[in-house]
C-alpha cells in the first residue's frame, strides 16, 4: 500500500466519522422536529432560523453539565460503558460501500474503508458487540433500574440477533457473497434485493428496530418503568455518548438496510447518468442517492417511534422467538426451494 493510498483512506475514515457524528447530531434535531409535526406542533424553533442550531445548544449543554460518578459505582467501568457504546456504534461504518469507485485524474478512490470479504458478518459482529456498552454501563452504575435495563438490553439483543442472522442468511443465498461491495454491485440499476427478499427485509427491519433499542422495542430505557433504564445514573457527556450511539446506530443500520436490500448507491438509469457526468462526478450522485435512502430510513425509524406504543416485555419475547424466528426459517426454506427450481 502506497503512502497516498493510506492518506486517502485516512481522509475517508475522517470524513465518514465526521458525517456520522453530524448526522447523529442532526438526528436529535430531526427527531424533535418530526415528533412535533406528527403531533401537530412546531418543534424547536428558537436557536437560529427554524431552530437549526438546537443540536449545538444541546451539545453545549451536555458539555457544561456536572459530571456525576455515583459513590458506589465501579469507576473505570462506569466510564468504559459509554465509550464502548459509541465506539462499537462508529466502527460499523467501515465496511459500507458509500459509492462506486471515484476516478479523479489518474487516481481511483474506493469509497469504502475496507472491502473485506466477510463484510456482512463483520456488521453482524459489531452489532452483537454493541450490547456490551449498555450492559457494562448498567452494571457499573450500581443501580437497580440500570441493572434491569442492562439485563433487558442483553436478552433483547441476543434474541433478535438470531432472527436477524437468519433473515440475512436468506439474502446471502440470493447474493452468494458476503462482501458488501459485491452485494451492492449486484443490485445495479433497479435489481434491488427487496424485490427478491421482501419477507427477509421485513424481518430485518423489525430486528434493526430491536437492535438499536428504538421504539417499539426501547424497553432497556423505558422511562415509565425503569426511570432512565441503563443510563439512569449518567449525566453530562457520558449520557450524551449513550444518546449519540443510539443515533449513530440508527444511521449505520439504515445504511446497511439501504445497501443490503434497497440497492445501496444504485438507482434506475444510473448508466445513462454515469455516461453523461463522467467518472469523477457520477459516483458522487450515487452516493447522494444512498444518503437519500438512508435519510428515508431514518425518517421511517422516527415515524414508527411516534406511531407505535412500546411492547410489553413478554410480547417482545413472544414476537422474537415465536414469530420472527419461525418466519425467518420458513423464508430460508422457501428461498432455497425457489433457487433450486430456477436453476
Amino acid at each position: 500500500m502506497e503512502l497516498t493510498d493510506i492518506i486517502v483512506k485516512f481522509i475517508l475514515v475522517f470524513i465518514i466519522f465526521a458525517i456520522s457524528l453530524v448526522i447523529a447530531m442532526y438526528s436529535t434535531y430531526a427527531e424533535r422536529k418530526i415528533a412535533a409535526f406528527f403531533q401537530d406542533r412546531i418543534g424547536p424553533n428558537r436557536a437560529g432560523p427554524w431552530g437549526i442550531f438546537q443540536p449545538l445548544a444541546d451539545g453545549g449543554k451536555m458539555f457544561l453539565k456536572e459530571e456525576i460518578i455515583p459513590t458506589n459505582a465501579s469507576g473505570f467501568l462506569f466510564i468504559a460503558g459509554p465509550s464502548l457504546a459509541i465506539m462499537t456504534a462508529c466502527i460499523g461504518s467501515a465496511v459500507i460501500p458509500w459509492g462506486q469507485k471515484l476516478t479523479i485524474g489518474s487516481h481511483v478512490i474506493d469509497l469504502q474503508v475496507a472491502d473485506i470479504n466477510v463484510g456482512v458478518l463483520y456488521i453482524f459482529g459489531v452489532v452483537s458487540l454493541g450490547v456490551y456498552g449498555v450492559m457494562i454501563g448498567g452494571w457499573a452504575s450500581n443501580n437497580k433500574y440500570s441493572l434491569l435495563g442492562a439485563i433487558r438490553a442483553a436478552s433483547q439483543n441476543i434474541s433478535y440477533e438470531i432472527s436477524m442472522g437468519l433473515s440475512i442468511i436468506a439474502l446471502l443465498m440470493v447474493t452468494g457473497t458476503l462482501s458488501l461491495r459485491q452485494i451492492a454491485e449486484q443490485q445495479h440499476g433497479w435489481h434491488w434485493n427487496i424485490l427478491y427478499q421482501p419477507v427477509g427485509f421485513l424481518l430485518f427491519i423489525v430486528c434493526a428496530f430491536a437492535e438499536t433499542n428504538r421504539t417499539p422495542f426501547d424497553l432497556p430505557e423505558c422511562e415509565t418503568e425503569l426511570v432512565g433504564g441503563y443510563h439512569t445514573e449518567y449525566s453530562s457527556m457520558k449520557l450524551g455518548f449513550y444518546l449519540f450511539s443510539e443515533y449513530i446506530n440508527m444511521f449505520i443500520s439504515s445504511a446497511v438496510m439501504a445497501t443490503l436490500y434497497w440497492g445501496g448507491y444504485n438507482y434506475p438509469g444510473m448508466d445513462w447518468v454515469l455516461a453523461h457526468t463522467g467518472p469523477a462526478i457520477g459516483p458522487l450522485i450515487g452516493t447522494a442517492v444512498l444518503f437519500a435512502k438512508i435519510f428515508l430510513f431514518i425518517f421511517f425509524f422516527m415515524w414508527v417511534r411516534w406511531t407505535i406504543p412500546r411492547f410489553r416485555y413478554d410480547q417482545l419475547m413472544d414476537l422474537g422467538w415465536k414469530i420472527l424466528i419461525p418466519l425467518a426459517i420458513a423464508n430460508i426454506v422457501i428461498t432455497g426451494i425457489v433457487i433450486t427450481l430456477i436453476k
Binding site: N117, L121, G125, S128, L129, V131, M135, A150, A154, E161
Partner: peptide
C-alpha cells in the same frame, strides 16, 4: 477470516454476553 469473524460473533457477541448476564 471466517473463523475470526465467527469467533467474534459467537464467543464475544453471544456466549460472553450470556456469561455476563448470569454473573450480573
Amino acid at each position: 477470516q471466517f473463523l475470526a469473524i465467527v469467533n467474534f460473533i459467537v464467543y464475544m457477541g453471544a456466549i460472553l454476553v450470556l456469561f455476563l448476564y448470569t454473573l450480573m
